[in-house]
Amino acid sequence: MSSDRDFVENISHQFERTAVRDHMSVEDATEHQFRLVETAAQVMGSDEVFVEDYGQVRELATVGFGGGGRPRATARVEEVLARFFGTDEAVLVHGAGTGSIRAMLNGIVEPGSRILLHKAHPYKTTLPAMQHMGLDVQYVDFNDASELERSLRAHSPSTFYLQHVPQQLGDSYGIEETIELARSVGGDDLRVLVDDNYAVMRSHRIGVEMGADASALSLFKLLAPQAIGAVLADADSAGRIRRDNASAGAQVQGPYAMAALRSLIYAPVALAIQNQTILRAVDEINAGIAAGDLPFLAGAYSAQPGIRCIVLLFDRPAAEHFLRSAWRHGSPSQSVGEEAQFEFLPLFTYLTSTFLKATPGLEKYAVRINPMRGGTQTVMRVLRDALADTEFQTALRA
């Protein structure tokens, strides 16, 4: 029992130290929605919001494209995104978040060049993309500003790569401060790229709005019905990405682009309500623990282990038994694309793989809850039913 207690106390302290990135309030998210609609109105006018063509129009594709065409509606949606985020260009790509990261790397980073990453496990499809390009990957702890500065001077990377959301327990560095440090040491030739997945439409600003050269994001995780993403970048970089995807089969067609924009309109408020639910549920869970009403739990945290969620910490290695119980009492047992529009029931599941790899044993003591579109009442009902489950309690007391 003492080893359980020591491990749980250590994990608890680490969660308290781990950053939770900026999240908009419902009021701010509403203004974000209004600003996106106003931007679309300026770009598209009125009836043009109903244009969903597959045709090619060369005159809308020459800037930063090197010739060639793209669907009119796709070009319009890309212009809306570029204006909204204050960048030269936006390029829609297939493959959601992974596709946007690969497109960003392929379009901006020279094969075989040196790239500097945070000393943590990257997202599972990011490192393979870098390895396939033959990049010289170097790691440094972004949480230590002095070490980061020394590494930038010693390694002289051509590219500096950040993941907006925390990658492991203990990550506390600020995004804007880290970008500023990289810029001050690396100079104008250093390309700063940000994986903004799970931060867009949550945070007030994303990487390109804080001084980065490019941002990659998933529109699929922002309620788009198709698995598409976007890269926000300067005109030259966008042109290279478009040339790489110049065939019609590789381009995002107009109906998909318009569907993504229509869905994106609703994302800020939906995500702000989700964040509000997380904060309220954590307060209610911790009150229940203090009152002795929620057995086996050591604490709850409003955290962001890759994905914004509630983290439940158990006082013993109960996580696997608990999840099996939660799946019997209302939570899906799998995800078809977490945060995608297809998912709305609260999801009780394991922590993200990057966090688990960085902290061996964490998978036995902690789980996460993503409320999705559900409220505190639904989260608490599933939680209480799962804890009261006879099979779960029998397994823990065996």
Results as ranks from 00 to 15, higher is better:
residue 326 A to K: 01
residue 360 P to A: 07
residue 153 R to E: 15
residue 279 L to W: 13
residue 19 A to Y: 12
residue 169 L to K: 03
residue 88 D to F: 03
residue 151 S to R: 15
residue 222 L to R: 08
residue 370 N to K: 04
residue 71 P to M: 01
residue 373 R to Y: 14
residue 265 I to D: 04
residue 244 D to H: 09
residue 224 A to G: 02
residue 318 A to E: 06
residue 243 R to Y: 13
residue 21 R to S: 14
residue 73 A to Q: 01
residue 50 F to T: 11
residue 203 S to N: 05
residue 308 R to K: 12
residue 358 A to T: 09
residue 219 L to C: 04
residue 17 R to Q: 15
residue 313 L to A: 01
residue 299 G to Q: 04
residue 154 A to C: 11
residue 370 N to A: 09
residue 368 R to N: 08
residue 161 Y to V: 06
residue 392 F to A: 00
residue 251 Q to G: 01
residue 209 E to P: 08
residue 149 E to I: 03
residue 184 S to C: 04
residue 398 A to F: 14
residue 284 E to T: 10
residue 71 P to V: 00
residue 24 M to A: 04
residue 50 F to E: 14
residue 346 P to S: 00
residue 372 M to K: 06
residue 70 R to G: 11
residue 205 R to K: 14
residue 73 A to G: 01
residue 303 A to E: 12
residue 319 A to V: 08
residue 286 N to L: 10
residue 353 S to H: 15
residue 338 E to C: 14
residue 152 L to Y: 08
residue 238 A to P: 13
residue 325 S to W: 09
residue 50 F to H: 11
residue 52 E to R: 02
residue 130 M to F: 06
residue 37 V to H: 11
residue 345 L to K: 07
residue 329 H to K: 02
residue 198 Y to Q: 12
residue 269 V to E: 11
residue 40 A to P: 10
residue 258 M to H: 03
residue 311 V to Y: 05
residue 349 T to M: 10
residue 66 G to Y: 11
residue 149 E to C: 04
residue 111 P to A: 00
residue 203 S to I: 06
residue 267 A to D: 07
residue 395 A to M: 06
residue 242 R to V: 03
residue 356 L to C: 14
residue 374 G to T: 05
residue 17 R to H: 11
residue 298 A to K: 06
residue 159 T to Y: 09
residue 10 N to T: 15
residue 176 E to T: 07
residue 174 G to D: 12
residue 136 D to G: 02
residue 286 N to H: 07
residue 375 G to Q: 09
residue 42 Q to K: 14
residue 30 T to R: 12
residue 372 M to I: 06
residue 265 I to G: 03
residue 211 G to Y: 02
residue 164 H to D: 11
residue 99 G to D: 04
residue 326 A to E: 08
residue 105 L to M: 09
residue 246 A to H: 12
residue 290 A to K: 12
residue 319 A to R: 02
residue 281 A to F: 13
residue 43 V to N: 00
residue 202 R to I: 11
residue 176 E to M: 11
residue 295 P to H: 01
residue 315 D to I: 07
residue 207 G to T: 01
residue 88 D to S: 04
residue 314 F to A: 02
residue 199 A to Y: 02
residue 74 T to V: 01
residue 288 G to Y: 03
residue 309 C to M: 11
residue 283 D to C: 06
residue 217 L to R: 00
residue 189 D to M: 10
residue 204 H to Y: 13
residue 81 L to G: 00
residue 219 L to G: 02
residue 193 L to Q: 04
residue 104 M to V: 05
residue 123 Y to K: 14
residue 106 N to K: 13
residue 316 R to F: 10
residue 301 Y to S: 01
residue 173 Y to F: 13
residue 123 Y to P: 12
residue 193 L to V: 00
residue 27 E to C: 08
residue 107 G to W: 10
residue 121 H to M: 15
residue 345 L to I: 10
residue 293 D to T: 03
residue 363 E to C: 07
residue 293 D to F: 05
residue 76 R to I: 09
residue 40 A to N: 06
residue 139 Y to T: 03
residue 251 Q to S: 01
residue 239 G to K: 02
residue 133 M to E: 04
residue 160 F to Q: 07
residue 340 A to Y: 10
residue 179 I to V: 02
residue 396 L to R: 00
residue 231 V to T: 01
residue 281 A to H: 05
residue 324 R to N: 14
residue 223 L to C: 09
residue 361 G to E: 13
residue 215 S to P: 11
residue 248 A to N: 12
residue 115 I to R: 00
residue 198 Y to R: 06
residue 79 E to C: 04
residue 60 L to D: 13
residue 120 A to F: 07
residue 162 L to Q: 05
